[in-house]
Structure formats: structure tokens, C-alpha cells
Design a protein around this nucleic acid. Structure first.
Lengths: 225, 225
DNA sequence: TTTCCATGATAACATTATGTTTACACAAAT
DNA sequence: ATTTGTGTAAACATAATGTTATCATGGAAA
């Protein structure tokens, strides 16, 4: 369960800024790509499908706000993080930016330290699902130690069982379709029989001893207290 | 489709700022509460369990950063949104803030417009998931959790029942012809008898316990409170 | 009032989805 | 090399759901 390096696309028409930001974010372990205007930003975004896009607002061909608006209409970019770079005191831009669906903005002149903090903070929020211990009711699921504790008693789950439980528990109450479960736990390229999920569910229920997984017939399974 | 008002706690030692922010966020439809120092912020946070906490960094007794750090150690506040208010150009505070787990910060002097934008942006990000929940009167229909809650009591519907109810409830008051219902819920290729819809309607009425589906004789059914 | 018709109600029936068990291949641990 | 644990498949059992047939009911039109 390792985290892949996050991919960041930066679009700005000033080569200096591109270089400074690239350098600093690269040093932080991010995979950094650049674009020098609005059109290129769109192109590269589609190619790369980055985790975060940093857009200067004032760019040739298309402004950052236009780029953002176009991206947000596409489902693939609905969740993509977007940060705007904007001149200080340009309040109307800030507001337009947020309305367009930006996640944050950073004012120029840019301080690398602040930018990095912001970027990290955004990712931290998104990533909360990975890497963090889940506590639901009297169940504690620790994806790092790979343990499940129910009422102070540790249950030992096999890998697939754990992954399945973790998936369900990551969004308690939410129903996961069998397809979703397959693609998240087994991956898209693997083909397994229909009963496989059930069998794992059964084993989890058995090992945990309590009934925390609800069947929604014809739909899927959900984790519930 | 009303969402419950989000609860915001603001902590700052300057009464003027409290008032300005309270007024503006209140106007936006948020439920606003205030605290005038770090200790009070902690107390009120525990009482209120707000959706968002806005913390001034410089406060008597405990700084915003300390408050944030304390809150973040508690599971209940793990997901709570936190915004820091900070003096302009105090870079080190920004950084500490994000490291402590802040979700955003806003620099003083505060522009109400910007603050509101930020607040809205944060909530937008969080809410993306519950966006599809239908709330009509005292009925909550959640297609993600696949639950129907009537007067705080959960009714368990089967798949077809749920889909049928969801269809009707998606446009309360509008009459759906039997044909429409068939094609939306059963699909165009399936052929079922005439009584099938009635039977499902009946089951829904029975399970929900209240009469929220009206028959329009000779036409179809509609969802009504 | 009577007739007609759409729908309500019920139970029997058909169909699926899931639960359960066993067996087996394979990997990991001893 | 042997044992143990894990993941998958197959076969079957069970329970939940969906559908139909049938009859009852109640309101509107004649």
C-alpha cells in the first residue's frame, strides 16, 4: 500500500516562476510538469491527468479561470485539485476563482515555502483516507500496522480480507457495488468468480465476530455499526 | 432540497472582527458561534461540534495553533474544517498552521467577501459526496448509503422499491406516468405486468409508514409530502 | 343506483442474489 | 520437505426479492 508520487501540473507564462516552483515542488518529491499558456495547460492536463494543477490567472490564449472552468466540466477533473496564482489584492479574481471551483489560491509574488505548505495541506486533506487509522465505533482499523481491533481484541485478517474491510470502512454507511469492490480490491485486470466477494465477506464477518457489514441485495455491501 | 445549516465557530479576541465575520457568515445562511480566546474556543468546540472552526492565531490563553493541535488529537475533530486568521506576511505562522492540520488560512485585514468564498469553497469540497441525498420534509433518501429515513427511523427498502421511490422523490409533486416509471426503473427491454408497479408502490407505502405517494388515477403516481 | 375500470391487496410462484461449505492450487512459513 | 495459510472456484442451500394471478374495493360516469 505505497503512495505513488503525486503529479503536479503548473501553468504560467513566466519561465522564471515555472522554474522556481518546479524546483521546489520537485524537491518535495512531487512529479512536476509545466505549461506556458492556457491552451497548453488544457492539453497537458488531459495527457497527464495530474493530481494537482496550479494555474496562473493571467495567461495567454486562455486565463487560468477559463482553463479551470473547462476542466471542471469534465468528470475526470472533477476531483482534481486546482490552485490559482493571482496578483495580490485582486479580490475579484479570487472570488471568481473560488466560484469556478478552485481549491485554493496563492498570491504573487510567490513564496516557495508558503506554496509548498499549501500544496501539502491540500494533499493532506485528500489523503486522509489513506494512511490513517480508522476508528468506527469499537472497531479500529490500522492500515499501517495492518491490524483490526474489535472491542480490544485483535482479529487477524488476510490481505484481501483486510483490503476489502478497509475499503468498506473507509466510507461507513456508503454502499459499495460489487463492481467497485472488484476494481478497488482486485483491480480491473483480474477476473474472479461471482462468489469470491461473498466468501471474503463471510470470512470477515466470522473473524470480526460482530455484524458490521450489511448486505444490500442486488446492490452491494456497506459497513455499518 | 435543503441542507442543514452548517455550524461555524469563530474565535478571535477582537470583538469587531467577531461581529463582522458573524454578520457576514450569518447572512450566508451559516449558524455562527463565537469565542473570545483559546480556552473558550476549545470549550465551545466541544459543546457545539461545529463543521468549521475559524481560529485567530494570536489569542489570549491559547493561540489558535495550540487550539488546533489540541482539537486534532481528538477523533471527533479529525475531520472538522479549520481556518486560521493570521497577520499578513507572517510566513512562519502559515506554515505552522498547515503543519498542525489547518485547511486554509486567511490573512488580516479580513475581506468578508474573500472569507466567504473560502468558507464556501471548503464546504463545497467536503460536500461533494452527500450532494445526491434527497431531503423532503422528514424523509431523507440517500442513494449512496442506500437508506431511507423517515422521522429518524430507518426503513429498509429492496432495490426496486428504492429505485422507484427515488425516482418519484427526485421530482416531488410531479406525476410520473406508469410508462415513465417502467422505462426508468425497469428499463425499456424488460416487460412486466401491470400490477407490478402497484405492488411495489404498496410495499413502499407500507414500509415508510406514511402516505407520501399519491395515486393519480388513470395517470400515474407522484411523491408528495 | 348500477356499471365499469383503475388500482389496492394478498398470496402463490418464479427468479436471483447471496450464504455456506468443500475442495484445490499455490504461496509463505517452518 | 512439510506444514500452514490464503485465494479462488464449484456446488449447493437458503433467503430475499420480483412478478403474476386473482380477487376486492372504491370512485366516477352513465
Amino acid at each position: 500500500m505505497e503512495t505513488k508520487a503525486k503529479r503536479i501540473l503548473i501553468a504560467d507564462d513566466e519561465p522564471d516562476i515555472l522554474e522556481i516552483i518546479s524546483y521546489n515542488l520537485g524537491k518535495e518529491g512531487y512529479e512536476v510538469y509545466t505549461a506556458k499558456d492556457g491552451n497548453e495547460a488544457l492539453e497537458r492536463a488531459k495527457q497527464l491527468n495530474p493530481d494537482l494543477i496550479i494555474l496562473d490567472i493571467m495567461m495567454p490564449y486562455k486565463t487560468g479561470i477559463e482553463v479551470c472552468r473547462i476542466l471542471r466540466t469534465q468528470p475526470i477533473f472533477e476531483q482534481t485539485l486546482i490552485i490559482f496564482l493571482t496578483a495580490l489584492n485582486d479580490e475579484s479574481s479570487h472570488i471568481k476563482g473560488f466560484e469556478t471551483g478552485a481549491d485554493d489560491y496563492v498570491t504573487k509574488p510567490i513564496s516557495p515555502k508558503i506554496l509548498i505548505s499549501r500544496v501539502n495541506a491540500l494533499f493532506r486533506r485528500i489523503q486522509k483516507e489513506d494512511g490513517k487509522v480508522l476508528k468506527i465505533g469499537n472497531i479500529v482499523i490500522d492500515p499501517i500496522k495492518y491490524t483490526v481491533v474489535v472491542n480490544e481484541i485483535e482479529a487477524i485478517l488476510a490481505k484481501k480480507e483486510f483490503e476489502l474491510l478497509f475499503l468498506l470502512a473507509s466510507k461507513p454507511g456508503r454502499v459499495f457495488l460489487r463492481n467497485e469492490i472488484l476494481s478497488q480490491v482486485w483491480g480491473t485486470s483480474v477476473i474472479v468468480g461471482d462468489r469470491t466477494i461473498d466468501v471474503h465477506i463471510r470470512k470477515i464477518r466470522q473473524k470480526l465476530g460482530i455484524d458490521c457489514i450489511t448486505t444490500v441485495k442486488g446492490v452491494g455491501y456497506k459497513f455499518d455499526i
